[in-house]
Nucleic acid binder design. Sequence first.
DNA 1: AAATTGCCTTGGATCGATTCAAATATAGAC
DNA 2: GTCTATATTTGAATCGATCCAAGGCAATTT
Lengths: 359, 359
Amino acid sequence: MTVLTSGKTRPVRLADIAKAAGVSHGTASNVFARPEIVREEVRERVKAAAEAMGYSGPDPKGRLLRAGKVNAIGVATAEPLSYFFDDPFARVMMASISQACDATGAGISLVSAANNEQLAWNIQSALVDGFIVFCIEGGSRLVELARERKLPFVALDLDSENEAVAAIGIDNIAGASLAARHLAEFGHRRFAVLALESADAGFGPVTQEQVETSSLYSGTRDRLRGYFAELSRFGIDVSQVPIYETLNDEETVRAGLEHIFALPQRPTAILAMSDRMALHALDWLRQHDIAVPGDVSIVGFDGVPEGAVSKPPLTTVAQPIAEMGRLAVKAILENDGSLSRQLLPVDLVIRASSGPAPA
Amino acid sequence: MTVLTSGKTRPVRLADIAKAAGVSHGTASNVFARPEIVREEVRERVKAAAEAMGYSGPDPKGRLLRAGKVNAIGVATAEPLSYFFDDPFARVMMASISQACDATGAGISLVSAANNEQLAWNIQSALVDGFIVFCIEGGSRLVELARERKLPFVALDLDSENEAVAAIGIDNIAGASLAARHLAEFGHRRFAVLALESADAGFGPVTQEQVETSSLYSGTRDRLRGYFAELSRFGIDVSQVPIYETLNDEETVRAGLEHIFALPQRPTAILAMSDRMALHALDWLRQHDIAVPGDVSIVGFDGVPEGAVSKPPLTTVAQPIAEMGRLAVKAILENDGSLSRQLLPVDLVIRASSGPAPA
DNA sequence: AAATTGCCTTGGATCGATTCAAATATAGAC
DNA sequence: GTCTATATTTGAATCGATCCAAGGCAATTT
């Protein structure tokens, strides 16, 4: 595995094999890359030399520089790496991205970092042919970094403002409208909203104005707009609808529900901006003996598989997650510049967590 | 972003910047790699040139060859890539691996492939500093491939036979004993086993002999040995204990329970070789109004987080998954050759799914 | 004025391969 | 024996950086 040169050892290179076999390194390279053009006798000799010296084929590091293609795409997020394995939405998305990669033989590199400094470095030095950027919350910095690499990249779920970057997202306003209309048509008139972050690291009750004025997190803002536009159409005074912002985890969802159900007017319908929140809410409601959908209806957002097996199964606004992943991978690998921005349609999946408003 | 040379364009290199700024390439390199040793005036000039030519920093491809370190570890499996995001055990393991990577700033490359040919190529050409190999089922081919790369690598959960490869695993026999003893001490005498695969693509009732004779899947075999050795110690005739092999999914677990509970002697205790199976079993039992642990006790294996929140919470043999991930990453990154084989201790976590045998 | 010191800068060597135009060998035709 | 066509092989150039010994230069010592 190593040659001895003046007392110190170093890994065997293709050139060492070539010398040992008495051929040029060009020929040695051909033995591995295009064996069919090398005369059999020579080929065997080179292979024998390789075997003897414990050489196990050309080092990808060297090949890479020459070839230029890594054959892997980077998936980046500003969350810790474990986000990819913890978050239900990320998992479904990654599963679909990985299927698309499997189909084309490309690998996946996970790029992230504990702190912001690391993150910049990691993105700058990632060995990938392109990036898929998860823009969860205020991912604009991430987009900026990825863009500086001057590699093909697409943003998933990007703030709809930035027209200049390639992005695959959904129509948050339309999706939210769907959810709100569904509940309103069931006769619900007292609503509450479980919102995603609209400003950094905040949770607690917020007002519509606060959400509107925060420039980041356009997903949160658009979903709220969609909800409220639709509710207004039904003559509901949206200024009276409580909005509670959570961190999309169990603890803050429960806190939100405690808050909401302590208000004088209990809601009969909850609009949750993620399935994760909706599922935690389902747990809380069951533990508090509030029947779903008997007393309270709830509609989630995302369409994660857990929603299909919850108790009760969750009505939700399903994103075409698999399609988004496929498109993203395609955009990177083909890099024909065809993709600029793409808003995919969402789908209201009606299950058992929503029903007529109680009389 | 590109320079024009005799009619064709090519990406800007560091050398182009150096020339444009009138410095040597060595200095240009220092501007990016160790800016503090370059005089400010020069530094600014080079940076300006870079800016002007749209150069966004040294290409990692070039750096890699020189540095030799990719700063990423490969995680390989023979399953499709999406396994990493679908399987609960894999997910917990990946979460812990990614935490360890985050802590050291290393990236993660997922390596897998649809078919065997691809897999070989993907492993041979992966740009990584080492491999962590998931040896789920008969992963010996995978280990062989990884080994040929001559990079540091560790196998997770390897067949305990192969003494030559570095591996991190658990003592399956001891873990299984723990589970069996726990139930036996509760007075249980009628057992059933929900087993993992022991041969390819099979599910259904099997005998102890069948499991023993299958050479792959030593995990399944060892767990069964552990169960039965311990039960025998309590004077239980293990030849009468039904074993049902599942595919670790809901459907086959339910089929297994239908089968087991249709037998003349209903068990009062179930030993499940994975938490995933145990959790599906819990669902089935609840739906059939069989009280846990009133009528039937059940003990899982793995220690996935879902087991802590199931109803009832699952007694299980917890693997030190986080520790395994940490050790694996450490072994790769430090590569001090210190790790050869390591069997980590397992832990019986007693929760509410096990209790005294019914009178 | 010469010598020493410290700070920057230079340019050649190197990392490990692939590529391709040119050179060489081999065989068959005339 | 020469010529041509074909099959192999060669070796220099290239990919894009980093490293480092050696050199240049200005400020300080002797």
